[in-house]
Design a binder for these strands. Structure first.
Length: 269
DNA sequence: TTCCAGGCGTATC
DNA sequence: GATACGCATGGA
């Protein structure tokens, strides 16, 4: 990875990165494809327009500056992690080798913990376009992604404008537990995986899968392994006896390659 | 019309 | 602990 400043843009060179595979793969819900090679979205409430450059592995971050890049996007895009090395390790496994080859530009975004937790509460028993719709109505209503504190006045009834169905009461419970201090996401981020998962699961509507997504995408616990309907299929098909040794410590990262592969790439044999 | 979606709470055994 | 079922909403 390296970067250069070009006027009001940052030019990023990162071969293990693809905009579609990272920004539109079901881990974050606030990125919009605004042109064939361009996405617009946010980390917290910092806006970015990013496009793929003329040559592979080169990207342009528009209208930003070096400080914002180093303070926000370097971390958000997980640029300190060597995905080439991870893919080499994963590729000891035959299926993961195919998954990494199929979508080698996947990265695990380092999202805000509250945004990830609340987004994945909304995600349950739901589909990605509708999840984006609900989160779009939430951010439009609040003029940005609302923190838990901002949501204190909301009730299940007042959140009806989201059209999030039975999930509204789960959001209300998450807001209550976090803003009361009963749960502290920064503290949870420092706990061992099992304890962190158990703490999150005290929230109504947070089960094993939502907890793991919050830990993986919102607290960058790369050993968190969310199992949804797609991963159930992947495990039954490829790993009936468990995950291979080569993913240890990075189960969540491997999960993202497998998730994308079984949803989009792997054809039934 | 019916089925399904990055699941979970509840009841029941 | 496992299994069955309902759940809001909307796209396919």
């Amino acid at each position: 990875m390296d970067y250069t400043v070009s006027g009001t843009d940052i030019i990023l060179r990162q071969p293990d990165f693809d905009l579609d595979e990272t920004l539109d793969c079901g881990q974050a819900f606030r990125w919009t494809k605004t042109a064939g090679d361009t996405y617009e979205g946010y980390y917290l409430n910092t806006y970015l327009r990013i496009s793929a450059g003329d040559e592979p592995g080169v990207f342009r971050l528009h209208d930003t500056d070096e400080q914002t890049f180093l303070n926000s996007w370097y971390s958000y895009l997980d640029l300190s992690t060597d995905y080439g090395e991870l893919k080499r390790r994963f590729s000891e496994d035959e299926t993961l080798a195919k998954a990494c080859a199929y979508a080698g530009g996947i990265r695990i975004l380092r999202q805000d913990s509250w945004e990830a937790l609340s987004s994945f509460i909304i995600s349950q028993n739901n589909n990605i376009p509708r999840i984006k719709g609900i989160i779009g109505r939430l951010t439009e209503h609040y003029g940005g992604y609302p923190g838990a504190e901002q949501l204190i006045p909301e009730t299940e009834e007042s959140l009806a404008f989201l059209r999030s169905g039975f999930r509204a009461k789960y959001l209300v419970d998450a807001v209550a537990k976090i803003t009361s201090g009963e749960l502290d996401l920064d503290r949870i981020a420092g706990l061992p995986l099992d304890e962190a998962k158990a703490a999150l699961m005290t929230i109504k509507g947070v089960g094993p899968k939502v907890a793991m997504c919050a830990l993986l995408f919102g607290m960058h616990k790369t050993d968190a392994f969310p199992v949804d309907v797609w991963m159930k299929r992947a495990l039954e098909r490829w790993y009936p006896n468990g995950l291979p040794e080569c993913v240890r410590g990075h189960e969540g990262t491997a999960q993202q390659y497998l998730f994308h592969y079984i949803r989009n790439g792997a054809r039934a044999q």
